[in-house]
Design a protein around this nucleic acid. Sequence first.
DNA 1: CATATTTAAGAGTATTAATTCTTAATTAAT
DNA 2: ATTAATTAAGAATTAATACTCTTAAATATG
Lengths: 145, 145
Amino acid sequence: MKVLSQTSKYGIRALLYVVSHPGTGQFVSIGEIAKELNLSFHFLTKIFRELTNKGILHSYRGPAGGIALAKPADQIKLVDIVLALEGDDYFDNCLLGFPGCGVEKPCPVHNFWKGIRSEIKSHLLNTSLAQLGEKIVAEEVRLYD
Amino acid sequence: MKVLSQTSKYGIRALLYVVSHPGTGQFVSIGEIAKELNLSFHFLTKIFRELTNKGILHSYRGPAGGIALAKPADQIKLVDIVLALEGDDYFDNCLLGFPGCGVEKPCPVHNFWKGIRSEIKSHLLNTSLAQLGEKIVAEEVRLYD
DNA sequence: CATATTTAAGAGTATTAATTCTTAATTAAT
DNA sequence: ATTAATTAAGAATTAATACTCTTAAATATG
Ligand code: SF4
Ligand code: SF4
């Protein structure tokens, strides 16, 4: 049941690393994150570039450069990351893949799927990086393999 | 939010056609289904072959041949079709893609995802082709684009 | 038996997602 | 200035998914 692309998964995990590892400097280097989480440096760079373009991150080049959250961690919700990386129509596509969803007569699984979809969306909307970061710092949950 | 592969989507839609269009003969031809649902005949043939191998369908070659449900429609659940086409580990993979799920310390979204996952699974487990077929026959929902 | 119809099997192609690679630009420190 | 460190940009590659094509096998009917 693949719900998120690798891009989104890595993006979320990487930002969870950032919020749960407050370094000394202002920026966290992509190389450090990629190494710690065992992700491809180049792939992660691409993901972060997208998040920077979408205004979720700031970046800085050169020695001691890296990326940093553009907003306080409690103001960045999982849904922001997902929509930035999967596209704004992420929650529009449906279980059986009918086109023109919701416009005409519903498909056979509409009621069920509408519920699930809104549950997922509202949860991602109500979960911030700060919240999950705290759980990681408290070692209640893991971030590594 | 792509949850099912095209294969599964087409498979479910095709079987919903079968249960909601009781023809005169014992078998429904793949050509008819593909034409009515505007799906690729060859692709659908491949999907049905898999479902036949997995014991969900019976097939018959030659004139007046086609496919037929191997069991009464109320005994075929959506979960059967999905597991047959997506693989038995369909419900094992998780939101953030951690390996060795559930064995060690949970990931940051475990509680949330566990709930969603089991909701989806139990719904697919409790929904039969017969149920959805009735809704289609009653024209409460649509099966076509 | 000959022919038409239909599924079976698998090779082949195309599209999309995932990942890697190369080169350029920016910045800090010496 | 020179060098090292680092992100930016996008081309190139690989892998996975989706789809198409070809040929074979089965079966009914005349
Ligand atoms: S009818 Fe509802 S569940 Fe079905 S495809 Fe449209 S929006 Fe999605
Ligand atoms: S910890 Fe739970 S939600 Fe996270 S990957 Fe494992 S089973 Fe899935």
